[in-house]
Protein backbone atom coordinates (compact mmCIF):
# COMPACT_ATOMS: atom_id res chain seq x y z
CA UNK A 1 0.00 0.00 0.00
CA UNK A 2 2.80 2.34 0.91
CA UNK A 3 4.64 1.86 -2.32
CA UNK A 4 1.39 2.37 -4.13
CA UNK A 5 0.87 5.68 -2.41
CA UNK A 6 4.44 6.64 -3.14
CA UNK A 7 4.09 5.89 -6.79
CA UNK A 8 0.91 7.92 -6.95
CA UNK A 9 2.73 10.82 -5.38
CA UNK A 10 5.55 10.43 -7.84
CA UNK A 11 3.21 10.24 -10.76
CA UNK A 12 1.32 13.32 -9.72
CA UNK A 13 4.57 15.24 -9.29
CA UNK A 14 5.59 14.12 -12.74
CA UNK A 15 2.26 15.20 -14.12
CA UNK A 16 2.53 18.63 -12.57
CA UNK A 17 6.01 19.08 -13.98
CA UNK A 18 4.95 18.02 -17.42
CA UNK A 19 1.78 20.06 -17.50
CA UNK A 20 3.56 23.24 -16.60
CA UNK A 21 6.00 22.85 -19.47
CA UNK A 22 3.56 22.33 -22.28
CA UNK A 23 1.38 24.57 -24.38
CA UNK A 24 -2.35 24.18 -24.25
CA UNK A 25 -4.62 23.28 -27.12
CA UNK A 26 -8.31 23.77 -27.19
CA UNK A 27 -10.69 21.29 -28.57
CA UNK A 28 -13.70 23.48 -29.15
CA UNK A 29 -17.04 22.77 -30.71
CA UNK A 30 -15.47 23.52 -34.07
CA UNK A 31 -15.26 20.54 -36.34
CA UNK A 32 -12.84 22.08 -38.79
CA UNK A 33 -9.63 20.09 -39.06
CA UNK A 34 -7.09 22.73 -38.22
CA UNK A 35 -3.52 22.25 -37.13
CA UNK A 36 -2.50 23.30 -33.71
CA UNK A 37 1.02 23.42 -32.50
CA UNK A 38 1.76 20.30 -30.55
CA UNK A 39 5.13 19.81 -29.06
CA UNK A 40 8.78 19.18 -29.46
CA UNK A 41 9.59 15.63 -28.58
CA UNK A 42 12.91 13.90 -28.15
CA UNK A 43 13.19 10.17 -28.27
CA UNK A 44 12.48 8.58 -24.92
CA UNK A 45 10.98 11.78 -23.56
CA UNK A 46 7.56 11.92 -21.91
CA UNK A 47 5.34 14.85 -22.64
CA UNK A 48 1.85 15.66 -21.59
CA UNK A 49 -0.35 17.95 -23.67
CA UNK A 50 -3.26 19.64 -22.00
CA UNK A 51 -6.48 19.64 -23.97
CA UNK A 52 -9.76 21.22 -23.06
CA UNK A 53 -13.05 19.70 -23.90
CA UNK A 54 -15.69 22.37 -23.97
CA UNK A 55 -19.30 21.35 -23.76
CA UNK A 56 -21.34 24.22 -25.15
CA UNK A 57 -24.50 22.22 -25.20
CA UNK A 58 -27.28 22.59 -22.63
CA UNK A 59 -27.06 18.94 -21.63
CA UNK A 60 -24.10 17.15 -20.14
CA UNK A 61 -22.28 14.91 -22.56
CA UNK A 62 -19.83 12.12 -22.43
CA UNK A 63 -16.88 12.28 -24.79
CA UNK A 64 -14.90 9.32 -26.01
CA UNK A 65 -11.31 10.19 -26.80
CA UNK A 66 -8.99 8.60 -29.32
CA UNK A 67 -5.68 9.61 -30.84
CA UNK A 68 -3.82 8.30 -33.86
CA UNK A 69 -3.01 8.79 -37.56
CA UNK A 70 0.65 9.44 -36.93
CA UNK A 71 3.68 8.37 -38.93
CA UNK A 72 5.85 7.53 -35.99
CA UNK A 73 4.91 5.08 -33.33
CA UNK A 74 3.95 6.67 -30.03
CA UNK A 75 2.78 5.46 -26.74
CA UNK A 76 -0.35 7.46 -26.07
CA UNK A 77 -2.90 7.67 -23.31
CA UNK A 78 -5.25 10.22 -21.85
CA UNK A 79 -5.33 11.09 -18.20
CA UNK A 80 -6.93 13.44 -15.74
CA UNK A 81 -4.63 14.09 -12.84
CA UNK A 82 -2.97 10.71 -12.72
CA UNK A 83 -5.80 8.41 -13.62
CA UNK A 84 -6.03 7.01 -17.08
CA UNK A 85 -9.29 7.78 -18.85
CA UNK A 86 -10.85 6.75 -22.11
CA UNK A 87 -13.93 8.90 -21.92
CA UNK A 88 -15.15 11.67 -19.75
CA UNK A 89 -18.40 13.37 -18.92
CA UNK A 90 -18.51 17.14 -19.15
CA UNK A 91 -21.35 19.06 -17.48
CA UNK A 92 -23.37 21.43 -19.61
CA UNK A 93 -21.66 24.67 -20.50
CA UNK A 94 -18.32 23.90 -18.89
CA UNK A 95 -14.96 22.57 -19.95
CA UNK A 96 -12.79 19.81 -18.62
CA UNK A 97 -9.07 19.42 -18.94
CA UNK A 98 -7.58 16.18 -20.13
CA UNK A 99 -3.92 15.38 -20.62
CA UNK A 100 -2.59 13.52 -23.62
CA UNK A 101 0.57 11.70 -22.66
CA UNK A 102 3.04 11.06 -25.45
CA UNK A 103 6.20 9.03 -25.58
CA UNK A 104 8.06 8.21 -28.75
CA UNK A 105 8.58 4.52 -29.29
CA UNK A 106 11.88 3.60 -30.93
CA UNK A 107 13.37 5.85 -33.59
CA UNK A 108 11.41 8.41 -35.44
CA UNK A 109 10.85 7.82 -39.15
CA UNK A 110 9.73 11.38 -39.83
CA UNK A 111 10.82 14.44 -37.99
CA UNK A 112 7.67 16.45 -38.50
CA UNK A 113 4.71 14.37 -37.54
CA UNK A 114 1.07 14.99 -36.87
CA UNK A 115 -1.36 13.46 -34.51
CA UNK A 116 -5.14 13.44 -34.75
CA UNK A 117 -7.10 13.60 -31.55
CA UNK A 118 -10.74 12.77 -31.84
CA UNK A 119 -13.43 13.45 -29.27
CA UNK A 120 -16.67 11.67 -30.09
CA UNK A 121 -19.68 12.95 -28.23
CA UNK A 122 -22.27 10.47 -27.04
CA UNK A 123 -24.71 11.76 -29.66
CA UNK A 124 -22.20 10.98 -32.40
CA UNK A 125 -20.81 14.48 -32.91
CA UNK A 126 -17.12 14.43 -33.61
CA UNK A 127 -14.46 17.00 -32.78
CA UNK A 128 -11.05 16.62 -34.28
CA UNK A 129 -7.85 18.39 -33.36
CA UNK A 130 -4.68 17.92 -35.32
CA UNK A 131 -1.48 18.34 -33.40
CA UNK A 132 1.87 18.86 -34.94
CA UNK A 133 4.73 17.02 -33.39
CA UNK A 134 8.28 17.93 -34.09
CA UNK A 135 10.83 15.32 -33.32
CA UNK A 136 13.93 16.85 -31.89
CA UNK A 137 16.94 14.93 -33.06
CA UNK A 138 19.46 17.35 -31.66
CA UNK A 139 19.44 15.92 -28.23
CA UNK A 140 19.23 12.23 -27.51
CA UNK A 141 20.69 10.45 -24.58
CA UNK A 142 20.55 6.75 -23.80
CA UNK A 143 21.81 4.77 -20.89
CA UNK A 144 22.50 1.07 -20.58
CA UNK A 145 23.54 -1.06 -17.68
CA UNK A 146 26.63 -3.16 -18.40
CA UNK A 147 25.23 -6.06 -16.41
CA UNK A 148 21.80 -7.54 -17.03
CA UNK A 149 21.41 -8.65 -13.49
CA UNK A 150 23.14 -7.89 -10.23
CA UNK A 151 23.55 -10.11 -7.20
CA UNK A 152 24.35 -8.64 -3.83
CA UNK A 153 24.35 -9.69 -0.19
CA UNK A 154 22.28 -7.65 2.23
CA UNK A 155 24.40 -5.21 4.19
CA UNK A 156 26.94 -5.04 1.34
CA UNK A 157 27.21 -2.75 -1.65
CA UNK A 158 27.11 -3.46 -5.35
CA UNK A 159 28.75 -1.66 -8.27
CA UNK A 160 26.52 -0.70 -11.13
CA UNK A 161 28.32 0.26 -14.32
CA UNK A 162 26.52 2.19 -17.03
CA UNK A 163 27.36 3.14 -20.52
CA UNK A 164 25.89 6.45 -21.52
CA UNK A 165 25.62 7.40 -25.18
CA UNK A 166 24.97 10.69 -26.87
CA UNK A 167 22.77 9.78 -29.87
CA UNK A 168 21.97 13.33 -30.79
CA UNK A 169 23.70 15.91 -32.93
CA UNK A 170 24.65 18.34 -30.17
CA UNK A 171 26.99 18.22 -27.21
CA UNK A 172 25.55 17.09 -23.94
CA UNK A 173 26.93 18.57 -20.74
CA UNK A 174 26.90 17.60 -17.08
CA UNK A 175 25.51 14.15 -17.57
CA UNK A 176 24.68 12.49 -14.29
CA UNK A 177 23.07 9.20 -13.38
CA UNK A 178 19.99 9.57 -11.22
CA UNK A 179 18.98 6.49 -9.29
CA UNK A 180 15.53 5.47 -8.12
CA UNK A 181 16.13 2.89 -5.46
CA UNK A 182 14.07 0.62 -3.23
CA UNK A 183 13.30 1.76 0.29
CA UNK A 184 16.38 2.36 2.45
CA UNK A 185 18.81 1.64 -0.38
CA UNK A 186 21.37 4.34 -0.90
CA UNK A 187 23.85 5.31 -3.60
CA UNK A 188 27.06 5.92 -1.71
CA UNK A 189 29.38 6.75 -4.62
CA UNK A 190 28.99 7.96 -8.17
CA UNK A 191 25.98 10.27 -7.87
CA UNK A 192 28.21 13.31 -8.33
CA UNK A 193 30.22 11.99 -11.27
CA UNK A 194 29.78 14.24 -14.29
CA UNK A 195 30.36 13.47 -17.96
CA UNK A 196 30.37 15.65 -21.04
CA UNK A 197 29.72 13.81 -24.28
CA UNK A 198 30.11 14.92 -27.87
CA UNK A 199 27.64 13.61 -30.45
CA UNK A 200 28.08 9.88 -30.95
CA UNK A 201 30.35 9.54 -27.94
CA UNK A 202 29.88 6.88 -25.30
CA UNK A 203 30.99 7.18 -21.71
CA UNK A 204 30.94 4.79 -18.78
CA UNK A 205 30.32 5.55 -15.17
CA UNK A 206 30.04 3.46 -12.03
CA UNK A 207 27.75 3.87 -9.11
CA UNK A 208 28.05 2.12 -5.78
CA UNK A 209 24.78 1.18 -4.15
CA UNK A 210 24.52 0.19 -0.49
CA UNK A 211 21.93 -2.44 0.31
CA UNK A 212 20.85 -2.13 3.94
CA UNK A 213 21.42 -4.87 6.47
CA UNK A 214 17.73 -5.13 7.11
CA UNK A 215 16.91 -5.93 3.50
CA UNK A 216 15.36 -9.38 3.38
CA UNK A 217 16.27 -11.64 0.50
CA UNK A 218 14.40 -11.21 -2.76
CA UNK A 219 14.34 -9.73 -6.21
CA UNK A 220 14.22 -5.98 -6.58
CA UNK A 221 14.60 -3.45 -9.34
CA UNK A 222 16.78 -0.40 -9.25
CA UNK A 223 15.87 2.25 -11.79
CA UNK A 224 18.19 4.78 -13.37
CA UNK A 225 18.05 7.67 -15.75
CA UNK A 226 20.86 9.68 -17.23
CA UNK A 227 20.22 13.40 -17.09
CA UNK A 228 22.18 16.14 -18.81
CA UNK A 229 21.58 19.88 -18.72
CA UNK A 230 19.68 19.55 -21.94
CA UNK A 231 17.75 16.33 -21.77
CA UNK A 232 17.01 13.17 -19.84
CA UNK A 233 17.18 9.61 -21.03
CA UNK A 234 14.45 7.08 -20.63
CA UNK A 235 14.29 5.07 -17.43
CA UNK A 236 16.10 1.74 -17.32
CA UNK A 237 15.44 -0.99 -14.79
CA UNK A 238 18.17 -3.24 -13.47
CA UNK A 239 17.02 -6.36 -11.64
CA UNK A 240 18.90 -6.90 -8.39
CA UNK A 241 18.78 -10.13 -6.47
CA UNK A 242 19.53 -9.72 -2.80
CA UNK A 243 20.70 -12.72 -0.87
CA UNK A 244 20.73 -12.66 2.90
CA UNK A 245 24.19 -12.75 4.32
CA UNK A 246 24.61 -16.27 5.55
CA UNK A 247 25.97 -15.43 8.99
CA UNK A 248 22.73 -15.92 10.83
CA UNK A 249 22.15 -19.22 9.07
CA UNK A 250 25.61 -20.47 9.96
CA UNK A 251 25.14 -19.37 13.54
CA UNK A 252 21.91 -21.29 13.75
CA UNK A 253 23.46 -24.40 12.23
CA UNK A 254 26.49 -24.07 14.51
CA UNK A 255 24.38 -23.86 17.64
CA UNK A 256 22.36 -26.81 16.45
CA UNK A 257 25.49 -28.90 15.94
CA UNK A 258 26.71 -27.86 19.38
CA UNK A 259 23.48 -29.00 20.98
CA UNK A 260 23.52 -32.22 19.00
CA UNK A 261 27.04 -32.93 20.23
CA UNK A 262 26.03 -32.21 23.77
CA UNK A 263 23.08 -34.56 23.46
CA UNK A 264 25.31 -37.27 22.10
CA UNK A 265 27.71 -36.85 25.02
CA UNK A 266 24.83 -37.07 27.45
CA UNK A 267 23.59 -40.27 25.87
CA UNK A 268 27.10 -41.74 25.85
CA UNK A 269 27.71 -40.87 29.47
CA UNK A 270 24.41 -41.82 30.99
CA UNK A 271 23.12 -44.36 28.54
CA UNK A 272 19.52 -44.68 27.52
CA UNK A 273 16.97 -45.22 30.19
Amino acid sequence: MKSFKKSILLLSLLAIMLVSSVSTVFAAEVSAPEFSTGCNLSSGENKALSLFIQNADVAPHSYTLTAGDSANSYELYFSTNVATVKSMTVPAGTGNQVDLNITLNGNASVNEDKLTVKAVRDDGKENIVNLSIIINKDYALSVKSMLDKINVLSGKSADFTFSVMNNGSQDLNNIKIKPELPYKWFASQGTEAIMNLKPGETGTTTMKIDVPNSQIAGNFTAKFTAVSDEIGSSLISVPVTVKTSSNIGYWMIGILILIAGFTLVQFKRHGRR
Binding site: F4, V82, A83, T84
Partner: peptide, 15 residues
Protein backbone atom coordinates in the same frame (compact mmCIF):
# COMPACT_ATOMS: atom_id res chain seq x y z
CA UNK B 1 -10.47 -3.48 2.11
CA UNK B 2 -7.22 -4.15 0.28
CA UNK B 3 -9.16 -6.13 -2.24
CA UNK B 4 -11.26 -3.12 -3.09
CA UNK B 5 -8.11 -1.08 -3.31
CA UNK B 6 -6.28 -3.55 -5.52
CA UNK B 7 -9.14 -3.52 -7.95
CA UNK B 8 -8.84 0.20 -8.42
CA UNK B 9 -5.10 0.13 -8.67
CA UNK B 10 -5.26 -2.34 -11.51
CA UNK B 11 -7.54 -0.23 -13.58
CA UNK B 12 -5.23 2.70 -12.85
CA UNK B 13 -8.24 4.69 -11.96
CA UNK B 14 -7.86 6.26 -8.61
CA UNK B 15 -11.43 6.76 -7.75
Amino acid sequence: RTFAYALNATAQTVT
